[in-house]
Design a binder for these strands. Structure first.
Lengths: 162, 162
DNA sequence: CTCCATTAGTTCTATTATAGAACCGTATAT
DNA sequence: ATATACGGTTCTATAATAGAACTAATGGAG
């Protein structure tokens, strides 16, 4: 059967998962951090099947994360991050920080993040903007926001009988 | 063919993608934020096939993100977040913040994150720990860390001839 | 004490996505 | 004139997914 989709759910985690919940999307975005922007270079560096790459790039373009720009007529393109795409790199940064901490021994991180301008190391940390404290310190709970469907049924299904 | 795996790559993004690059893993972790911890409840709320759920829960347990705890003999279990798992929620928080910003109109966010203790809103933000500035402001570059394979060939393949 | 519901799976099958390889068309470089 | 690079498309096999049916053990209701 077809892969389950979550794009109809009124939930940001579901929305993000619908696009990010795939093994190629984050890897393609990672490659942009190495300056990769052409079909061929993505294909070679990731060793990804060309049909899959094509489909994923389309998806990223359709979702406004990459834009496809002609750099030489008639069919040579660059795929460059949009603002939405650059913003999504924060998710990659959070993933990198997590895996650096948990998948590798202290002091043996294979990859460091650097500020491309200053060359200074970047150490990503997810904080709560209001308190300034690390998210990791918090116990997170989800609650309906202003955009949640105004239906007793939807509320019950998601949040239970509270 | 078999899905491509990245667990052999000396890269935290590849490592994180190998486990998080899947549409059920983030959704299962999301449910833990609603207090869900049993097989049946995950199954019903996510409407996930039981065989797939079983396989994903095994994966999460094997990766030390959840622990499977017997709460009633002989076969009723709770799946609870480990420290590694709680730490991974920061990635979910980053995803939620991103999609709240980009997938929904301002002021119509369907879901809010709350501090379970204080009830105060939580607004996740990925910053650079050293400068305190939002990651989004930075242009990220990847560079070899101390744990990167000490081989000219590996360096060239990943970072090019620099 | 018996019957039913709950929990936590396992097994089975049809359909789909993936990986991998071969192929194609256009344009610049040699 | 020929070769190479680029950006795909098409084809096939295999594996993963979704969906449904089935199993087994316990606890509780009557």
């Amino acid at each position: 059967m077809d892969r389950k989709r979550f794009s109809n759910q009124p939930c940001p985690i579901a929305q993000a998962t619908d696009i990010f919940g795939d093994w190629w999307i984050p890897m393609i975005l990672r490659e942009t951090l190495y300056g990769v922007d052409t079909f061929s270079e993505f294909q070679e560096r990731l060793d990804i099947s060309r049909n899959i790459l094509n489909q994923r790039l389309k998806l990223l373009v359709d979702n406004g994360i990459l834009s496809k720009e002609l750099y030489q007529a008639p069919n040579r393109f660059k795929y460059v991050l949009t603002q939405k795409g650059r913003s999504a790199l924060s998710i990659l940064a959070a993933m990198a920080a997590w895996a650096n901490q948990w998948a590798f021994p202290e002091g043996e991180h294979p990859i460091r993040l650097l500020d491309a301008e200053s060359g200074e190391p970047l150490v990503p940390l997810v904080i709560d903007q209001r308190s300034g404290e690390p998210m990791e310190m918090k116990e997170i709970k989800l609650a309906p926001g202003p955009g949640f469907p105004n239906s007793k049924e939807a509320l019950r299904r998601r949040f239970g009988i509270e």
